[in-house]
Every structure is written in structure tokens, then in C-alpha cells.
């Protein structure tokens, strides 16, 4: 029986002029590893989960690549794809208006916002995933990011389904001002409720994770993991260097640094991630009846996105 969690939007790809398309055109058969400079056959890189076969460098993943690697094929059902950014401050800087920047980013990235949420299965186990996309304005956390994550957490709490968040982010989105900052409070409050319902939250810190995301839901999860070499911090290294005039120690703010200082539970290679998540889910399933499979009052929105980037997101204040 299809759980109510599984209903929702099937992903409708946006038309895109993303440079990633260029990577697939004939002639771009090779990718160069930024770490060891090895030339890698693109298909080999994809087959190796975008990990350099020579030096083990974990390439950054787009959100949908991550979801594809993490959940069982065909199991992912996207949620709240129709929740789209607005421009509450009518923000603009010398590079243009925020609303224009949003449209350009939407066309370029093929996404409407920086966070993708939805339901899927990991080797048959139910899970809700919330994955940020660093290619969308540095996966900065604005109103939509916070709202989609909060909705996901609330549904997880009601349905008893574990949550996995994958968190790469530059921090709060400056263009939405204090609305962005308050998403830290909003998501942490939702996580507190998830905890009251005794539903586990697994956080994968992904490269790079900074600012408001590091200082909110991502670092208080029940299990916090990171891939090798991932950079995680509150303040960015350049800011720290400028202000303290100190040379940063080798390996500063890497996953290994965080592990050494007791800030994360463990480091996992990308190839072991899915299996590890499945094992964690099994532990919680044994001690606590997660995924009770009950229907929940949430009414899914079955309307489809029209597959076209919005002209201008109309500010509609939700209260």
C-alpha cells in the first residue's frame, strides 16, 4: 500500500541552460580532479559516485545527484516543489535585483530553490530526505529553505518517518535579511518537535557547510556525519584569517578536524553512505517503532509544476 508520504509531485525537470549539460556533450568526456589533477573518464567518475578513483577526492554533488545516490531508484517523491522564493525586501545590489538573480539562478540551476525535500526508501526503509543544492545561490537558507525543511520535519514527526538532511550551505541568505536569520530558529524549533516525537534525524554535512546552517539544525541532529575532506565551520576561513591575522592550521575546518574536536560522530566514504544510513535506520527501528505507516492529516498537493521558471515570484506573505 502506498503510504500517504509517497504521494506528491513527481519531479518535473526545468528547462535548463546549466553548464552541467555542457559537461555531457561529446568532447567533454574527461573531467580533471581538482585535487590530484588526474584526468578521469566522465562515465567512470559517475560510476564511482563522483569520487576520484585515484586520490579519493569527493566531488561536490548536486542535490538531485545526491538523492539519486541515496534512495532506491524510482522511490523518490518530491514535496513542496511549488513553494518558491519571493523578494520580501525588494533587495538589490550592484549586480542587480534579487528577483532577477532568482530567475537567472532558477534557469541556470534547473531548480526553483536551494532545498529539495521528499520521501524515498533506502534499501526498502522509509526515509524523508532534505538535500540542499550548493549551485543555487550557495544553498543559502532563506524563507523557502526554512519552510520546506520545517514542513518535512513536521510530517516526519507525525508519520514517525526518519529524516536525513544533507547540508551544504554558505549560510543564511542575505537577500532575505532577517527573514533568513529567523529560519534558524524555525528549523531548530521543528527539530525539537521531531525529537519529542522520538523520530531520528541524521545529518550529513556536505562540502561546504557554513554559517546559519552550521549554527542551526545541521549540527544538533541525532547523528552527524561527514564525507572525507568536507569543509564545515561557522565563520569562513578567509574571514577568520583577516580578523585574527593568524595562519590557519593545516586541515582547519575539515571533516577530520571536526571529528578530532568531537563535533561529528564519524566520517563516511561516499560508497559506504547508503549502507551506513540503512544500518542506522535499522537500529532505530528496533528500539522505537519508527515509520508506523499510519496515514497523517497532511493533504499532499497533487498539482504539478508547469515546468517553467516563474516570471517573478509574487510576494505572498504567509501568516
Amino acid at each position: 500500500m502506498r503510504s500517504i508520504l509517497q504521494r506528491g509531485d513527481k519531479f518535473q525537470p526545468l528547462p535548463t541552460d546549466d553548464d552541467r549539460l555542457d559537461q555531457q556533450i561529446p568532447g567533454d568526456l574527461w573531467k580533471k580532479c581538482p585535487k590530484c589533477s588526474e584526468l578521469i573518464y566522465t562515465r567512470e567518475l559517475e560510476n564511482n559516485l563522483r569520487v576520484c578513483p585515484k586520490c579519493g577526492n569527493h566531488f561536490r554533488l548536486r542535490a538531485r545527484e545526491r538523492i539519486e545516490q541515496l534512495v532506491d531508484p524510482g522511490s523518490f517523491v518530491e514535496w513542496d516543489a511549488e513553494v518558491r522564493p519571493a523578494d520580501p525586501l525588494e533587495f538589490s545590489d550592484p549586480s542587480g535585483a534579487y528577483s532577477d538573480k532568482l530567475q537567472a539562478t532558477q534557469r541556470k540551476s534547473g531548480e526553483y530553490e536551494a532545498l529539495i525535500t521528499g520521501f524515498g526508501t533506502v534499501d526498502g526503509r522509509s526515509i524523508v530526505v532534505a538535500v540542499s543544492d550548493f549551485d543555487f545561490l550557495g544553498a543559502s537558507m532563506g524563507s523557502v529553505f526554512g519552510e520546506k525543511l520545517t514542513r518535512a520535519m513536521e510530517r516526519c514527526a507525525e508519520a514517525g518517518t526518519p529524516l536525513m538532511s544533507v547540508n551544504a550551505s554558505g549560510g543564511a541568505r542575505m537577500h532575505e535579511g532577517l527573514f533568513s536569520l529567523m529560519q534558524m530558529a524555525k528549523t531548530v524549533a521543528a527539530f525539537a518537535r521531531l525529537g519529542e516525537a522520538r523520530v531520528p534525524h541524521i545529518s550529513l554535512l556536505a562540502d561546504p557547510c557554513y554559517g546559519g546552517v552550521t549554527a542551526s539544525y545541521a549540527t544538533i541532529a541525532d547523528v552527524i556525519i561527514a564525507e572525507p575532506g568536507t569543509l564545515v565551520g561557522f565563520a569562513g576561513p578567509r574571514v577568520i584569517e583577516q580578523i585574527t591575522k593568524q595562519k590557519l592550521p593545516d586541515g582547519f575546518q575539515t571533516a577530520e578536524f571536526l571529528l578530532e574536536h568531537g563535533m561529528i560522530d564519524f566520517i563516511v566514504e561516499r560508497g559506504d553512505l547508503k549502507r551506513t544510513v540503512a544500518e542506522l535506520l535499522d537500529h532505530y527501528a528496533r528500539v522505537h517503532q519508527v515509520d508506523r505507516g499510519e496515514s497523517i492529516p497532511w493533504q499532499p498537493n497533487l498539482a504539478r509544476s508547469n515546468g517553467v521558471a516563474p516570471k517573478a515570484a509574487k510576494p505572498g506573505k504567509k501568516s
Binding site: 534558524m184 530558529a185 531548530v188 524549533a189 527539530f191 525539537a192 519529542e196 554559517g211 552550521t214 549554527a215 542551526s216 539544525y217 545541521a218 549540527t219 544538533i220 564545515v232 565551520g233 561557522f234 565563520a235 569562513g236 574571514v239 577568520i240 580578523i243 585574527t244 593568524q246 590557519l248 592550521p249 582547519f252 575546518q253 578536524f257 574536536h261 568531537g262 563535533m263
Partner: peptide, 23 residues
């Protein structure tokens, strides 16, 4: 922003304070 602050988990400390206030 500082080396010691990062070593001792500046982000985590803020997040935990928020979590405490939430409940």
C-alpha cells in the same frame, strides 16, 4: 570568528542554545 571558537564548535554551541530556547 576565530580558530579556538571553531575548534570548540561555535556553530554547534549556537545551535544548542537555540534548541534549548525552543523547548
Amino acid at each position: 570568528p576565530g580558530i579556538g571558537s571553531e575548534e570548540r564548535g561555535q556553530g554547534t554551541a549556537i545551535a544548542e542554545s537555540l534548541l534549548t530556547m525552543a523547548g
